[in-house]
Amino acid sequence: MRNHVMTLGASVLVSFAFGLIAAAPMGSEAKDWTSRLSVLDPARPLEYFELGEEVADAAATDEQRAIARRLFGIAGRIDPEGLGASAALALATLTTDLRAADRLRAAAAMLGDGITRPGGAADRTTVDPLTALEISEAFGGFRTGRTSKLRQLVDDPIRLRLLKTWDASLPGGVKWLAEQSRRSSRSRPDLAEDEILAMLRIEAGLLQGNQRTWSSMLDLDGDEPLLEIRVDRIDEMLLDGELLPYWRDGRWVATPRG
C-alpha cells in the first residue's frame, strides 16, 4: 500500500514536471513573438505577414490567433496591392464564421490576380443526386410508416450533419426524426400539412440538384442576399479600426515610441 502511494506520488510529480517542461516552451514562444513583434516596421510589410503565418501555425489560444489575424490585417493594409489578397485568404482560414470566410475569400479575389473562384456558398447547399434520392426516399418512407431508410440516414454522421442544415425547417427537427426512425410501429406519422410541405421542400430542392427552381432556392436558402464586398472598404475587412503597426509594451500603437 505504501509502495502504491509512493508510486502514485512519484507519478504525480513526474507528470507535474513534464507539465512544467511542456509549459516552458510555450512561455518562451510567447516571448519570442514579443521580441519579434517589437522589431516589426511598417516599411517592411512582408515581415508582418510572415510572422503572422508563423503565429497562426503555432497558435493554440484565441489570443495568439488574434495576434495572427492582426498581423495579416496590418500587412494587407500597408501593402494592399502586394499582400492584400494573401492577407485576406489567410484571414479566411482563421475565421470560424463561414460567411465571413466567404467574404474574405471574395475580397482576396478582388484584390489579387489569378485567384479565381474561391469556393462559394453554393457548395454547401448542393448535395449529390444519390444523397438527395436517399433523403427523399427516407422522407417518403417515413411519411408512409416505413422508417428503415430514415434510420439508415440518421445513422450516417455525414448525412445527419447534412440534415442538420435544415434542422429548423424539419418537423420536430433532426432529433425528432431520428427518434421516429427508431420506433418500431409501422403506422404513418400524423403530420400536419405544413410539416409535410417542409419536408417536400427539402426533397424537391435536393432532388433538383443544380437545376433548382427559384421556389426551391427560396425554400432552401430563404432568400439570402448576396454578400456584398465593399470595394471601398476592403481595408476594413482586413483590419477593422485604426492601423496601429507598432508593438510596444504588449499592445499595438501608432508610433515607434508608443
Binding site: D102, R103, R105, A106, A107, A108, A109, M110, G112, D113, T116, R117, P118, G119, G120, A121, A122, R124, T125, R212, W214, M217, L218, L220, D221, D223, E224, P225, L226, L227, I229, V231
Partner: peptide, 20 residues
C-alpha cells in the same frame, strides 16, 4: 472582371447569381 469573379464565388443560388 476581378470583382465579377469574386462575386461569383459568393453566389449560393440562382437568385444570388442573378444579382452578381
Amino acid at each position: 472582371d476581378r470583382r465579377r469573379i469574386a462575386r461569383r464565388g459568393l453566389v449560393g443560388n440562382g437568385i444570388q447569381g442573378l444579382v452578381a
